[in-house]
Computed example of a mutant assay.
Amino acid sequence: MNISAVSKKFDLSPDTLRYYEREGLIPPVHRNESGYRDYDNYDMNWIYFVKCMRKAGVSVESMIEYTNLFLKNREGTAEARKDILREQKAEIEEKIFDLQQTLDYLNYKIDNFDDHLKNFEDRLDPYIQRKLKKENNDQK
């Protein structure tokens, strides 16, 4: 499959696909007789993997390290690669926890918005009135 078709399939620009290969996020892609990239299922599995990891916030450096370990010694680096995935999983779980706390707080604010607004405005209203009155007097 050519780069244009793969680009459309994964909703990634051709430049991004070239970047992935150039920087070592994915292994080198097979080239056809004319020198053009010819992506096969193996390449597309790597692209899918990298896209998922990047979407989850995994760093480029971690992805390069993972790919280098894989290419260097597939069986001998399995535990090291698994450690990278574990570390990234822990970071994602922490992000999810933080996001869940933020979501819970937003839900609380939305659920209680009318009461908060009414109470806040009722308390603030005399202050605003005094301030506006003072500003009007200062302008005269």
Rank of each mutant, 00 (worst) to 15 (best):
I3V: 08
S4T: 15
A5S: 08
V6C: 02
D11V: 05
D15P: 03
L17F: 00
Y20I: 10
I26W: 00
P28L: 11
P28V: 09
V29C: 07
V29F: 03
H30K: 13
Y36A: 07
D38R: 07
D40H: 07
N41A: 14
Y42N: 13
D43S: 02
I47M: 06
I47Y: 05
I47L: 10
A56M: 07
A56I: 06
A56H: 02
V58F: 02
V60P: 02
I64R: 04
E65K: 15
Y66N: 01
T67V: 06
T67F: 00
L69V: 08
F70K: 05
L71Q: 13
L71F: 09
L71N: 12
R74W: 05
E75F: 07
G76T: 10
T77V: 00
A78I: 15
A80T: 00
K82D: 12
D83S: 14
I84D: 03
K89W: 06
K89C: 05
A90E: 13
I92V: 04
E93F: 03
Q101E: 13
Q101M: 14
L103M: 09
Y105G: 05
Y108M: 10
Y108D: 08
K109W: 03
I110M: 08
D111F: 04
F113G: 10
D114W: 07
L117S: 05
K118A: 12
E121F: 15
E121S: 15
P126C: 01
Y127C: 14
R130P: 10
L132P: 10
K134Y: 07
K134D: 09
E135M: 12
N137G: 12
D138N: 13
K140P: 07
K140V: 12
